[in-house]
Nucleic acid binder design. Structure first.
Lengths: 200, 200
DNA sequence: TGGAAAACATTCCATCTGGAATGTAAGTTC
DNA sequence: GAACTTACATTCCAGATGGAATGTTTTCCA
């Protein structure tokens, strides 16, 4: 889709369209190629956009990545927020919440995020851009979880939340490396059991 | 150390020395610069070795990485093996084992390994080299843990082991991103409590 | 309607990368 | 001690990359 809608597009529309195309292409690249092999040129090619257009929107590569992270975070947040509303009651609620977290951290979005996290470790500019976004996302999700968790002890909920987040991150890593999916399911199931008993 | 020991060195010694220098420089680079910014040239510079010497030992970059992984795995394995011998008895043994796993997966060696894992996701050659090594390491450690865990139910031990491994991987990621160390300690402590109760 | 401005396209360049090709010195063997 | 092999050093190259500079088109507004 080389964006050839020749019908009258307002400047804002034009701008927004190519911007979005660039961000989506960026995430595609991160998932398919990894951060290292993701080049401006490749992104531009996938977005069907010229190098000049790219530079008009983002002056540097790191800036693009930061924007991609923001969009990513936004998507993840929206997804979590909407899903959190329709959780069942009782202990089923706990397991459902864990499933939800796992889904959030195991999809393509999470893969892209992981690529950026790792790259950010040795890239000060990128790290500076990612940290606030990452933190904000974590906190906000935690907030949702906390309010949703009703009368359960807040402190305990927090700990379990963060444990789950880190566990799922580790599992996501395992998934990316081609680990056994069956084992992952087993582990997640066991973790749910543990958590349920933990709150009993 | 530009390796200028002009005393008679046998060929084997010469070879072994530069090989080791290259491998160590590789790991240094992975930790400090990340896989993306790790170039042959940089490695050679750090090892105090010429490009030609490098090519004499490893024909390609991926081959070097594979060798680095092997060395890494070897070190990790040795470390685990020796540490596993002097674990205390009773419930203290469980928490000590978890600490041990955390140390294994959070040190510089683990950072280098993570860089390679992530890079391997989108690099078939590297992945092919890493998978067997990774698996072997995991299995062997699990074996050690299992024999060490005495009369505890084997299946349960396995699940908890893998949960711990993945949790620590997630926490290692968090650490690399500059997350709060205090929180990490809290989480690890809570996890230990959970595991101890789990086996009670 | 004409021109300013925003959005986009092309071209160019300094730099770096992995790896091939080729040259030299140190050790080994007979 | 001369031939030979292994270990290491230098040089060269084709290709890619990020980003600057400059050129072109589209929309907007007075």
């Amino acid at each position: 889709m080389t964006a050839q809608d020749r019908g009258h597009r307002t400047q804002a529309q034009r701008s927004e369209q190519t911007r979005t195309a660039l961000l989506e292409a960026t995430i595609d690249c991160l998932v398919e190629l990894g951060y290292g092999r993701t080049s401006m040129l490749e992104i531009c090619a996938r977005a069907g956009v010229s190098k000049g257009a790219f530079q008009h929107h983002f002056t540097t590569k790191a800036e693009l990545m930061a924007a991609a992270v923001e969009q990513l975070a936004g998507k993840l947040k929206n997804k979590s927020a909407t899903d959190l509303d329709r959780l069942p009651e009782g202990t089923a609620r706990i397991t459902a919440a864990i499933d939800l977290l796992w889904e959030s951290y195991s999809g393509t979005l999470a893969i892209a995020a992981t690529e950026l996290w790792i790259a950010a470790r040795t890239d000060a500019e990128l790290r500076a851009a990612m940290r606030p976004v990452d933190r904000a996302l974590g906190r906000s999700t935690l907030e949702d979880i906390a309010t949703m968790s009703g009368r359960l002890p807040r402190e305990k909920v927090e700990l379990v939340y963060w444990l789950t987040v880190n566990l799922t991150r580790g599992l996501a890593l395992d998934a990316e490396l081609g680990g056994d999916p069956h084992r992952r399911e087993q582990l997640l199931a066991e973790w749910k059991r543990i958590v349920v008993r933990h709150f009993a």
